[in-house]
């Protein structure tokens, strides 16, 4: 059940920084990714700040 038929060479879009092309990611995915990034980045920032707060509290 290959999703790729080896007899037919696959043609697909190339993205790179100089030439963005058709984005295969659907709108839903785009939103999901944005939400995930926001949440994870917030977690990271929170832990960074907590490391200082911890110091101040433990003093």
């Amino acid at each position: 059940m290959s999703t790729i038929d080896p007899s037919k060479p696959i043609r697909m879009t190339q993205q790179n920084t100089s030439s963005a092309t058709v984005d295969p990611v659907s709108d839903n995915r785009r939103k999901g990714v944005r939400r995930t990034v926001t949440i994870t980045a917030a977690i990271a920032l929170a832990f960074f700040l907590v490391s200082f707060v911890q110091i101040v509290l433990m003093k």
Binding site: T40, I43, F47, F48, L49, S51, I55
Partner: peptide, 13 residues
Amino acid sequence: IAVMPVLAGAVTM
């Protein structure tokens, strides 16, 4: 994502 920022905090201090 939880612990690399903590390392960053420690070395910043």
